[in-house]
Amino acid sequence: MHRVNSTVSEQTTTRSHRAYFGVFLVVGLSFGLVGPSISLLAEQTNTSLASIGIVLVTYGFGYVLGTQIFARGYDRGYGNRLIGCALLIAASSFALVPFISMRIVLAIVFLMFGTAVSTSDVGCNTLIVWELKDRVGPRLALMHTMFGVGAILSPLIVRASDEIRGDAAIAYWVAGAAIATVATVVLLHRAPLDPHLENRETEVDISKKQIALIVMFFLAYVALEVVFVTWIYTYGIKTGLSKNESAILTSTYWIGFMLGRVATVFLARKSHGILFIQLGAVLNIVVCLVLYLRIDSLLLPCAIIYGIAAAPQFPLMFGFIGNRTSLSGKMTARIVGTAGVSSTTLPWLAGQFLERVGSWTFPTFLACTAATVFIATKLITNSFGVPKHISATN
């Protein structure tokens, strides 16, 4: 009887990673709404584009808050219950957005949303590794691919909402309903257990230098991704594109991003996946150069190439670190918390430059983040070590 119960338990937990795919699908959908809807939120609150940027700051601060406080609950065994409850809070936050006309109240709601999303983000990234162990690589990449699948629809949903109502209400309600549905599915699944629970205390943690390098990488990478997707719509408007053309430009980026995440499923099987991070960073810099030179006829190709190049970098690096450390909720919280710090400050800063200085600052800012990603990847590779045949080609 005990053997049967163990088998049933294992089968139950094995199905949890499929629910995590759904989480990333709706998180991608909701995340992708923010950039294209930022101008509509400014109109809704009767504020300027620069002023409404405060919601990006509070969203990012909430993201950090979630990783530093609530996400530690995964090491205490809360698992899917914590993910599900966090998603329900996120759904409620988005459902409230269309009813808010005060900027400060909207900022508080985005604070709640950021806290909830980061809590679920840490949970999915940690629990899928616990559940699948050495089989996690391609499935982790597939989970992150679902983020792109959700995000690719976001600009079109925002545009449809704008056409129907003249605001972003329908888009936020659709996203809220989708998040609530997935939250229910997650709560019906049993969470995997920490496979390193018994021996984690006896294992040597990674050094402070290695942690600093990891922070450096994810700080730059998140800026590379989030700054682009948050402001590419506005950049398109400032360079003379219509709203429809700017929405298509944003969706084109997400198409490239999704293709890149699909490719990551296969790249994650390769022992030299770390090289693709560096190659992607170089391609991002090349795209930024084209944007800086204002070759407007290449905007759509640039958007799709930028997305393809950026997409594999996070999951490949996360998998690289996960294969070389005993990944805990605390460690994942550090990584995701770094992402939160980056998304708190750098998109807001880039928006200030774009609005107050000029459109040329957009590609310049992005090129700096891509260069930092390249350098950090090289330093991490040297610190953690890679197989000799890879080092020789690098």
Rank of each mutant, 00 (worst) to 15 (best):
T7L: 14
K388A: 15
V105L: 14
H196L: 10
M258N: 05
F94P: 03
V282R: 08
V290E: 04
I170R: 05
S48T: 13
I211Q: 12
L111I: 03
S391P: 02
V386L: 14
F266I: 13
W348H: 02
L249E: 03
T344A: 09
I214G: 00
T364A: 14
V8E: 13
L219R: 03
L197W: 14
V262M: 14
Y20A: 06
S93Q: 10
L193D: 07
T393L: 13
F113E: 00
E355H: 13
L187E: 02
F362W: 09
I170Y: 05
P138H: 11
T13P: 03
T13G: 02
T184V: 10
V373F: 04
G307V: 06
L349T: 01
V23Q: 05
R103Y: 06
G60V: 02
E43P: 04
I206H: 11
V386Y: 11
K208M: 12
L197F: 15
L291C: 00
N244W: 05
W173I: 05
E163Y: 11
R165N: 10
L249K: 01
Y63W: 10
A247F: 00
V226K: 02
T181M: 12
S326N: 14
Y172Q: 04
M216A: 15
L25Q: 05
D134G: 11
A107C: 07
A71C: 07
L267E: 01
Y235W: 10
L88N: 09
G260D: 06
A310F: 06
S154C: 07
V341I: 15
A392Y: 09
Y221Q: 00
W348T: 08
Y78E: 03
I83K: 07
V262W: 06
T145P: 10
F61Q: 03
T332P: 08
M331F: 13
I206D: 12
T119M: 10
M258L: 15
V122C: 05
T381R: 11
Q352G: 14
D205R: 15
Q68G: 12
M317W: 04
I214F: 03
T264R: 12
T115N: 07
S342H: 00
S39G: 08
S6N: 12
V136P: 03
P315G: 09
E203D: 11
A310D: 04
G148A: 10
L142H: 02
R15Y: 04
S343Q: 00
A371H: 01
L283R: 09
G32V: 05
A376Q: 12
C288I: 02
C288R: 01
S118E: 02
A309D: 07
V64L: 10
V286W: 11
A339K: 00
V57R: 02
S326H: 15
A247G: 02
C368S: 04
A178H: 06
F61E: 00
T126F: 04
M331K: 13
V282A: 14
A350Y: 01
S161A: 10
L188S: 13
I206K: 11
L298W: 05
I157Y: 02
L293V: 06
V229L: 09
Y235F: 15
L65P: 01
G150L: 09
Q68S: 13
M102D: 13
D296V: 10
R103D: 09
I170T: 02
S101P: 09
S343C: 05
G322P: 07
S326F: 15
T58G: 00
F21Y: 08
L106N: 01
V265D: 04
D205I: 12
H144G: 01
F365S: 03
I104D: 14
L106T: 04
F21V: 07
H189S: 14
R190I: 08
I232Y: 01
V109W: 04
